[in-house]
Computed example of a mutant assay.
Amino acid sequence: MRLACVDSGHAPSEAAVLQMIREQSGVEPLGVIKTLYYRPELFGRPFSDELDRAMRGPSDWSAGDRELFAAFTSLLHECHF
């Protein structure tokens, strides 16, 4: 279940980015993109910063290994992005 506000409740600057994505790609942005752009100061930026640290920060695993782990986990959970 996704909240309706994630589909249409964006601030003007974020709504403009989503509209540009629609125009350039010819398709509706994925729900994950809409979620990251909905009130980005509360979720989008902090989540993206943490994700970047997890995927690109110091680790015994290479960035490629971590991308493979993420892709495999998404596959197991039938996540299509």
Rank of each mutant, 00 (worst) to 15 (best):
M1A: 14
M1Y: 15
R2W: 08
R2G: 08
R2H: 11
R2M: 09
L3Y: 01
L3C: 07
L3P: 02
A4L: 09
C5S: 03
V6E: 00
D7W: 05
D7G: 05
G9F: 05
G9N: 08
G9Q: 07
G9V: 01
A11F: 07
A11W: 06
A11C: 09
S13Y: 12
S13K: 10
E14L: 01
E14A: 03
V17Q: 01
V17M: 04
L18K: 02
M20Y: 15
M20L: 12
M20T: 13
I21Y: 02
R22H: 10
R22I: 06
R22M: 07
S25T: 05
G26F: 09
G26E: 10
G26T: 10
P29T: 00
G31C: 07
V32G: 15
V32C: 15
I33P: 01
I33C: 01
I33E: 04
K34A: 03
K34Y: 01
K34Q: 07
L36N: 00
Y37S: 00
Y37E: 03
Y37R: 00
Y38A: 00
R39P: 01
P40D: 06
P40K: 04
E41D: 06
L42N: 07
G44D: 03
G44E: 01
R45N: 15
R45F: 12
F47R: 04
F47M: 09
S48V: 13
D49W: 15
E50K: 13
E50L: 15
L51H: 15
L51I: 08
D52A: 12
D52I: 12
D52T: 12
M55S: 04
R56G: 09
P58T: 14
S59D: 13
D60A: 13
W61R: 08
W61G: 09
D65W: 02
E67S: 11
A70M: 10
A70E: 04
A71H: 08
F72H: 09
T73S: 14
L75D: 10
L75P: 03
H77Y: 15
E78Q: 14
E78P: 13
H80M: 12
F81L: 11
